[in-house]
């Protein structure tokens, strides 16, 4: 009887584990918190990072350029940034139409950011896109990867 009960519990656990794995495979990155993922040995962060999920985009200006978007923090221990805390940080889209594109932040509120005038438009960004925002040491990044950015990075 005990063995039967243990066996049933084990089967139930495996079913739940399989369901979680299926959810993991199907889910967006925002649903990965707490699930074991691949990765190297943890080391100290080389960059300060903020990850966010787009909740909306601003209105286009007269030239149809969109330069603002709204966001919520996602990920473990991630909290809303202070006003202009992200000014001068590098923004890379890691989900959505602008995947892999790098832009630079002109300023921010706790839930909205504006990119530089010289950056591409945010047109095409939609709710649910994911952002990786990083504070670089400007001396350690190759100039070519920063586009035409001649200005030193502004750090708050």
């Amino acid at each position: 009887m005990l063995l039967t009960w243990i066996s049933a519990c084990a089967r139930a656990s495996m079913t739940v584990a399989a369901l979680l794995l299926a959810l993991h495979a199907a889910a967006g990155p925002a649903r990965l918190d707490g699930i074991q993922i691949a990765g190297h040995d943890p080391v100290d962060p080389a960059l300060r990072r903020f990850t966010g999920k787009v909740t909306g985009v601003g209105q286009p200006d007269k030239t149809d350029r969109v330069s603002t978007l709204r966001f919520d923090p996602i990920g473990p221990d991630m909290v809303a940034p202070k006003p202009d805390e992200l000014r001068g940080w590098r923004l890379t889209f890691i989900k959505g139409k602008l995947f892999g594109q790098t832009l630079w932040i002109e300023g921010n509120t706790p839930n909205e950011l504006t990119v530089r005038d010289t950056d591409p438009s945010l047109a095409g960004v939609v709710e649910g896109d994911i952002l990786m925002i990083e504070l670089l040491d400007p001396n350690l990044i190759a100039p070519t990867s920063r586009g035409n950015d001649d200005e030193p990075q502004r750090v708050v």
Binding site: P29, I37, A38, H40, I130
Partner: peptide, 25 residues
């Protein structure tokens, strides 16, 4: 990696790539 997986590129970019950059540094 080491018996674990990132099933999508978005999952890798969000959860694993930062660690790879930290490790490479």
């Amino acid at each position: 990696e080491f018996g674990k997986m990132d099933a999508t590129i978005e999952a890798y970019a969000l959860s694993h790539l930062p660690g790879d950059i930290d490790m490479a540094a």
